[in-house]
Structures are given as structure tokens and as C-alpha cells.
Amino acid sequence: MVKYFCGVDGGGTSCRARIVDEQGHFLGEAKTGSANILLGVELAMASIEDAISQAAHQAGISDLSEISVGLALAGAEQKSAWLDFMSLPQPYGHFTLNTDGYGACIGAFSGENGAIVIAGTGSVGIYLENGNQHVVGGREFPISDQGGGAVMGLRLIQQTLLAHDDLRATSSLSEYVLTHFDHDLDAIVSWSKTAKPRDYGQFSPKIFELAMQRDELAMELLQGSADDVERLILGLNRKGASQIALMGSIGERIVSWLSPAAQALLVQPKADAMAGAILMASGDHNLYPFPR
């Protein structure tokens, strides 16, 4: 018998789980590693189970079958990955899965109509309107996810290599990257063969830091990401969204780089993606993330 609800927000960098009781009272919360199912469904499940176990331990819950789980995960928009993930064994009383964007949008507007743009490691825009969802972007790194930290980091690596070859001016930021790799270009090439989105995204804090110090490359990269985020915002507006919550580690810090027109559309989210996933776990707002 289900007695508890757990909301899970999983992206390319981290996975967070929050457990509440039937009255919505907070019981426990934990954070673990990547839960993007396109990076491996078993890896994602391991992160999710670890986060839920830690949160359940805080809550004093020993029987995991008493928990209904709502999952808002990056990569869930791809049908084959969704099916592979949902076929894995799991110990919970109920289990539902949609995208991280869907969970964030449900949380941001408490299940009502509204739109969000997430810019974290990746990016996506979603507009929920009377049970219908309109999605822009979010087709995963490297072919999509513009405005996210991974694409920003990829562009940084590209521009650093150009600077090294005297094809553009060097800067404190490009020197920082070269120092990170001990000025070994072969090391950069080898790293790139196995680097995950979160590995590229690790450079975004330094980009923000040096942009504030007027580093030319950092400002160029940050403005490029802001332009990408703005494209998602205005795209949702053209689909009918008049209130858009900007969320994620990049989105929350990039507002001042957006145009006044884009900033005028922004509103504060009411709650986060874990709150949205808890609504999913309770049996509300369970659309499929892809055409069936």
C-alpha cells in the first residue's frame, strides 16, 4: 500500500529525490549523480535508487514498496530509452516517468497552464496548455541543448583550440582551459572522446566568473548562451505562452544577459521539478513524453 510520494529530478549532472507523506509533509531529500537515461538506463537507475534510499533512510522508511515515485528525467523524451528504463526491475509501489522539463513545468505552475525554459547542463522549453504539451529544443547534447552548460563548455573548448592556434585572441579564460589540461592538446583530444555533458558543463562557473571581469571570450560565450535561451523563451511565446519560468543553474544566472522583451515574459516558479514529480507520483498530470 502506497503511503509516501517521492519526486525525482534527474539531469546530466545530478539526481535529487524528495519524499513527502500523504499530507504533503516533507520527510527526506537526497542528491546523487547523473540520471540522464540517454547516458545509460542502468547508470541512471543506480543514481535514482541511491537518492531514494538516502531520502527514505532520513524519513525512516524501510519498505520501499510503500513509496510511489514520480520521475522527471533528462532523456525521457526518447521512446526507446523510456521503454528500456521502464523495463528495469524496481522495488517501489508505483513508478511513473516523464521528462525533467515536464516535471519542472508542473512544479513551476502547480499543475496549471504555464511554460518553463530549463537551462542547466542541457536545455529545453515546454508549454503546458489544458493538458497539451508543446516542447522546443531538448533533444540532447551535442545536437541540441543550446543555452545549457554542456554546449557552452563545448564552445569554450573549440574557441580555446582556436586561440592556441592563433586563430583568435587568447584570454584569461582560454589560458584557464589550457592550464586545466596541462597545456597538452593531445590530452584535450583524448578527453573529448569520452567526455559527458557534465564534463563540458564543469567550465560554466568559470565562464560566468570571468565574464564579470570583462574577459572577451567569456562574455562572447555567455552572450551566445543567453541568445540561445532567449530563442527558446520567444519560441514558447509564439506558441501562446505569456508566463515563462526560467530555471536551471544557467538559466537562473543568465537573466541579466537577456533582452528586455524576453525578461518581460519571465515569472518566478512556484516550486521546483521535484515538487512537480511528486504531483506525478500522486497520480496527477501523467502524460506520455512522446506520441504513443
Rank of each mutant, 00 (worst) to 15 (best):
residue 112 E to D: 12
residue 34 S to I: 09
residue 163 A to Q: 02
residue 249 S to Q: 15
residue 158 Q to R: 15
residue 157 I to T: 14
residue 45 M to Q: 09
residue 179 T to D: 12
residue 70 G to Q: 10
residue 104 A to P: 06
residue 8 V to K: 06
residue 96 T to Q: 12
residue 222 L to M: 09
residue 131 G to L: 14
residue 37 I to K: 06
residue 61 I to L: 07
residue 15 C to H: 14
residue 245 A to F: 10
residue 72 A to M: 12
residue 156 L to Y: 01
residue 107 G to H: 09
residue 188 I to H: 08
residue 151 V to A: 06
residue 73 L to A: 08
residue 97 L to M: 08
residue 100 D to F: 00
residue 74 A to G: 05
residue 7 G to A: 10
residue 137 G to H: 11
residue 146 Q to K: 14
residue 208 F to D: 03
residue 229 V to E: 03
residue 155 R to S: 10
residue 153 G to Y: 00
residue 115 A to P: 03
residue 251 G to V: 10
residue 172 S to A: 11
residue 19 I to G: 00
residue 61 I to N: 06
residue 273 A to L: 02
residue 116 I to G: 11
residue 278 I to A: 01
residue 205 P to R: 09
residue 191 W to D: 08
residue 226 A to L: 05
residue 92 Y to V: 08
residue 32 T to V: 11
residue 74 A to M: 01
residue 187 A to Q: 14
residue 174 S to I: 12
residue 151 V to Y: 14
residue 135 V to Y: 15
residue 241 A to G: 08
residue 196 K to M: 10
residue 9 D to Y: 04
residue 12 G to W: 15
residue 62 S to Q: 15
residue 234 L to V: 09
residue 205 P to A: 12
residue 93 G to T: 07
residue 94 H to P: 01
residue 80 S to T: 06
residue 287 L to Y: 03
residue 226 A to H: 04
residue 20 V to L: 14
residue 129 E to P: 02
residue 51 A to F: 04
residue 66 E to M: 01
residue 221 L to P: 07
residue 260 P to L: 07
residue 178 L to D: 00
residue 123 S to V: 02
residue 136 V to I: 11
residue 90 Q to V: 15
residue 108 A to K: 03
residue 250 I to P: 04
residue 21 D to I: 13
residue 52 I to L: 02
residue 28 G to D: 09
residue 94 H to S: 15
residue 26 F to G: 00
residue 280 M to G: 00
residue 68 S to I: 09
residue 111 G to E: 04
residue 60 G to W: 02
residue 1 M to V: 14
residue 95 F to A: 01
residue 134 H to K: 13
residue 171 S to T: 09
residue 5 F to S: 03
residue 63 D to E: 13
residue 130 N to P: 06
residue 7 G to D: 01
residue 82 W to K: 04
residue 252 E to D: 06
residue 8 V to H: 02
residue 10 G to I: 10
residue 174 S to Q: 12
residue 80 S to Y: 02
residue 265 L to C: 05
residue 49 E to N: 07
residue 106 I to C: 08
residue 219 M to P: 05
residue 269 P to V: 04
residue 212 M to E: 03
residue 77 E to Y: 12
residue 66 E to I: 02
residue 140 E to G: 01
residue 77 E to Q: 11
residue 101 G to S: 13
residue 102 Y to C: 03
residue 169 A to R: 05
residue 54 Q to E: 05
residue 164 H to L: 13
residue 10 G to N: 07
residue 204 S to R: 02
residue 45 M to H: 02
residue 105 C to F: 00
residue 199 D to E: 08
residue 132 N to Y: 06
residue 146 Q to L: 06
residue 233 I to P: 15
residue 225 S to L: 04
residue 41 V to A: 01
residue 24 G to W: 15
residue 189 V to T: 04
residue 36 N to W: 00
residue 115 A to D: 12
residue 204 S to F: 12
residue 54 Q to L: 06
